[in-house]
């Protein structure tokens, strides 16, 4: 059944990807701004030279033809050449991807390790000051825009206090020979503690910014499901058995309460992808999100198209992962 479901999911991807491609294509075509003009900037060129460049990039064809060509090539795994980099789009994306994955993972871990204990605590201390404060806090966390919270952190910790760096992923003087391309992991694997510390100091603020909303949501989910689970008959029965309180709380209640938390975490990771664009731009993080934003300004059509397709595939896959996790955590649902 798993394999069948997997194939089903893959099949569902086809219309999603087609639709997403079309929408992105239309939006890019309809937004004012001409990639050729942007590329040439202030350079003086003859109309012939400009025409040649336009032909080179395939921009002299009518839009519907360009779309069909794009789809045709994409089906063969060719997503075109980045206007700006003059290299295959896939290559450029692959270079930027590890930074984004690293940032997303750290944000997720931060969100999970703070949200789960706080959610459990809020449930156990229901209706106390702590519970109410955490409710207000998580509401703020959900509703605070990324850019605003990010800039706030940046101003305070980087600009005023100088505790943490303003931008980037690691300072230039640190060299880490790549293994996984995740700097935190590689620097540890290479035993380069100084580089690890430097990379860590760079990732803290963007990861906090990115993880805030997710953490707030996960905390609420954990609190709600803990409250529900603590009323369940099996928790009462566990109490009737005379088990220790921590065992009832963490083994009987939390194991069940985490099912929705983990599922929502997988789904929310898809949302983090969107947040990446803003956060990476604020913190000068050399990842995919910032690349996409830059490419939009450059009217770098092929790169934007490919990146958005990549996001869409990732999003659908994360949904699928959420399903799988739910099944694994919940023995009642058979694979």
């Amino acid at each position: 059944m798993t394999l069948g479901k997997f194939i089903e999911r893959l099949a569902q991807l086809v219309p999603v990807l087609l639709g997403v491609s079309l929408i992105v294509f239309l939006m890019m075509s309809l937004t004012p701004g001409d990639p050729v003009e942007i590329m040439l900037g202030d350079q003086h060129v003859t109309p012939e030279q400009e025409q040649a460049l336009r032909h080179d990039l395939g921009l002299d064809r009518p839009p519907h033809e360009r779309f069909l060509v794009f789809i045709g090539n994409a089906l063969q795994g060719d997503f075109g050449t980045s206007f700006y980099h003059r290299r295959p789009v896939g290559e450029v994306i692959a270079e930027r991807l590890p930074a984004t994955i690293e940032l997303t993972l750290v944000a997720m871990i931060l969100a999970l390790v703070t949200a789960i204990p706080l959610g459990v605590l809020a449930a156990v201390k229901k209706s106390t000051i702590f519970d109410k404060a955490s409710t207000v806090g998580s509401l703020l966390g959900v509703s605070m825009p990324h850019f605003w919270f990010g800039i706030l952190l940046l101003m305070l910790f980087a600009v005023h206090l100088h505790w943490l760096p303003v931008a980037g992923r690691i300072d230039y003087e640190y060299q880490v020979e790549p293994i996984t391309h995740l700097l935190l992991v590689d620097s540890l694997l290479r035993g380069n503690i100084a580089a690890f510390g430097n990379a860590l100091s760079h990732i803290i603020l963007p990861a906090l910014t990115l993880g805030l909303a997710m953490g707030a949501i996960l905390m609420r989910v954990t609190r709600t499901s803990m409250l529900e689970v603590m009323r369940a008959d099996y928790v009462r029965f566990a109490e009737a058995k005379g088990l220790a309180r921590h065992r009832i709380l963490f083994r009987h209640a939390l194991k069940n309460a985490l099912i929705p938390t983990v599922t929502v975490a997988a789904l929310e990771t898809g949302t983090l992808l969107g947040g990446n664009m803003i956060v990476e731009t604020i913190f000068g993080w050399p990842g995919l999100g910032r690349l996409v934003v830059e490419s939009i300004f450059q009217r770098n059509y092929p790169l934007v198209q490919a990146a958005v397709l990549f996001y869409a595939v990732t999003y659908v896959m994360l949904n699928f992962l959420a399903d799988i996790l739910y099944t694994i955590l919940n023995p009642r649902v058979k694979l």
Binding site: D233, Y234, R236, F237, E239, A240, G242, K255, N256, R332
Partner: peptide, 23 residues
């Protein structure tokens, strides 16, 4: 707690929900 489950034990009204589904 030391008495519960050892000296005095209780079975719950609904056996279907009294066992923890995740353990």
């Amino acid at each position: 707690r030391a008495l519960r489950g050892k000296d005095i034990a209780m079975t719950m009204q609904d056996a279907l929900t009294a066992l923890n589904p995740a353990l």
